[in-house]
Design a binder for these strands. Structure first.
Length: 485
RNA sequence: GGCGACAUAGCCAAGUGGUAAGGCAGAGGACUGCAAAUCCUCCAUUCCCCGGUUCAAAUCCGGGUGUCGCCUCCA
């Protein structure tokens, strides 16, 4: 398995710290707003990474934090006249709603800054004690010149960084690039007691303290968006390695940006789209599918048209799963002549290709191409079937279904019900019972009209239902209906 | 100013030396009462431009052009 490591800027063979196990830490959101699509990309991507490791048989420990104390939260709370900690609690709840809709599994732990003050303070103390950090009037700064490797992740030297620096001059700092690991608090701000007086952690230190707590030193994978490379991850490395004397992380993975009209989607540009607003217009499967349809390190341009095109593609895959389900519901015949031989041959090849694609730095775009090929092979096979199903064919089709399920286990596009089947219909409302009965009544009436070749009535019903989002398909086996994807 | 990434059909997109995956859209055909769905066929002699290396380059090297990003909060 090969992964692209930002630290070395090339693909490397993945070798876990401990065989058969993988520890992953992903930087989660600072909770002062609903998440936007740019935030959703790393969530969905790293959820897929985690799923793939599990699929490969690894024991995965997956940690994603919430930064729930921070200047941005404090400012936002002040604007709204709310308590900062209350504000972040609210957005953490909302985060889980959006992430859950996108079928992102909960991490094994979701540590919060507020729950880890002792660990953070202890780490700051260690940095002060060994001379990596210094105290000024209740603030504690990390001294970048004391850490020889500073800049190794972002590939820049201190002088490079200084040359273009737009940092405000703070005469209390020994170097303009020194950064706060502990900040003294102003009256009214959330504060915790520390050896340096009341204050709160600087940005960066929480991820170091929490990842080390749950994963230990030299853990396997640390992930996040490319914009975290500098300064966030660079500073995490400096702090962590200065404190522990050991390599912080083995592999650094960073996802590219979502763009809008080719420009980065970001809060400061104001061109962001909230996940919940997008979900009001598109099914969550489509959004997840769209996010995975491009390699994670490439930029992904968002607009409604592109999302709609992704949705139409996804419809093909849904249809194929539906056709397979219907075929498997047929009665078994004693026929010994199998007609699905080609599918049989294709399955193993496609499965191997899928794994190879994912093994190559999580190439979900290629992997999705393979899912489409499986769909075509399965559709072709299903088309050759008669009224009943030979045993051999049943075996092949159910194997094909299993492969679809395995692919979905990794990509996570469709939610899965309690018996492990993919949920491909977006129906299942509470009152769907009545709705379905009404629908089947209407379909019966239409069938009677069709028998009488009353095409006027028949088409009027079909067109009318289409306007309501119900698509009817007349097949030799009867009428099939589905909700418009 | 410093550093870096990318440039493949109408659109999206994979492909790091061996002769252009896949999807959307489009055209034709099979099937259908008509549709829809599905299947089949077609849709880049060519991968931003110019040089070079090589038997062979979208893929490597040099130069150019363009777009984007980081250096400040951001996923």
């Amino acid at each position: 398995m090969e992964v692209y490591n930002t630290m070395t800027r090339r693909k490397e063979t993945f070798q876990p710290r401990e065989p058969g196990k993988v520890g992953i830490y992903v930087c989660g959101p600072t909770t002062y707003n609903y998440i936007h699509l740019g935030n959703a990309r790393p969530l969905v991507f790293f959820d897929t990474v985690r799923r793939y490791f599990a699929y490969k048989g690894y024991e995965v420990l997956y940690i994603q934090n919430f930064t729930d104390v921070d200047d941005k939260i404090i400012n936002r709370a002040a604007q709204e006249g709310k308590d900062p900690l209350e504000l972040s609690r609210t957005y953490i709840d909302e985060y889980f709603k959006d992430a859950g809709a996108l079928n992102v599994r909960r991490a094994d732990q979701h540590p919060k800054v507020t729950g880890h003050m002792p660990e953070i303070i202890k780490m700051v103390e260690a940095l002060v004690e060994n001379g990596s950090a210094y105290v000024v009037e209740g603030d504690v700064y990390f001294e970048v010149r004391k850490f020889a490797g500073y800049g190794k992740l972002s590939g820049r030297t201190l002088d490079d960084l200084l040359a273009g620096a737009r940092v405000e001059v703070d005469t209390r700092k020994r170097d303009p690039l020194d950064f706060a690991v502990w900040k003294s608090s102003k009256p009214g701000e959330p504060a915790w007691d520390s050896p340096w007086g009341p204050g709160r952690p600087g940005w960066h230190i929480e991820c170091s303290a929490m990842s080390l707590k749950y994963l230990g030193t030299s853990f396997d994978i640390h992930g996040g968006g490319f914009d975290l490379v500098f300064p966030h991850h660079e500073n995490e490395i400096a702090q962590s390695e200065a404190a522990t004397g050991e390599t912080f992380v083995r592999y650094w993975l960073h996802n590219g940006f979502i763009t809008v009209k080719e420009e980065k989607m970001s809060k400061s540009l104001g061109n962001f789209f909230l996940v919940r607003d997008i979900l009001a217009k598109f099914p969550p499967e489509t959004v997840r599918f769209f996010l995975l349809s491009t390699h994670y390190r490439s930029p992904l341009d968002f607009d409604d048209e592109k999302l709609a095109a992704a949705g139409r593609g996804l419809e093909r895959i849904k249809t194929s799963v539906r056709l397979l389900t219907e075929a498997l519901a047929k009665k078994t015949s004693e026929d010994t002549v199998a007609v699905t031989g080609d599918l049989q041959t294709a399955i193993d090849t496609l499965k191997a290709s899928f794994d190879a694609a994912m093994d190559d730095d999580f190439n979900t775009a290629l992997a999705i191409g393979i899912v489409f090929e499986l769909a075509r092979e399965a559709n072709t096979a299903v088309q050759r079937l008669g009224e009943t199903l030979a045993r051999a064919d049943r075996e092949v089709l159910s194997k094909a279904m299993d492969v679809f399920k395995a692919f979905n286990e990794v990509l996570g596009v469709f939610k899965v019900d309690s018996s492990g089947n993919m949920i491909i219909e977006s129906v299942s409302e509470e009152n769907s019972g009545l709705a379905e009965k009404l629908l089947s009544l209407i379909i019966d009436v239409r069938q009677e009209a069709r028998k009488k070749k009353d095409w006027g009535t028949s088409d009027r019903i079909r067109d009318g239902l289409k306007e309501l989002g119900i698509v009817l398909e007349d097949t030799p086996q009867g009428v099939r209906w589905k909700k418009q994807g």
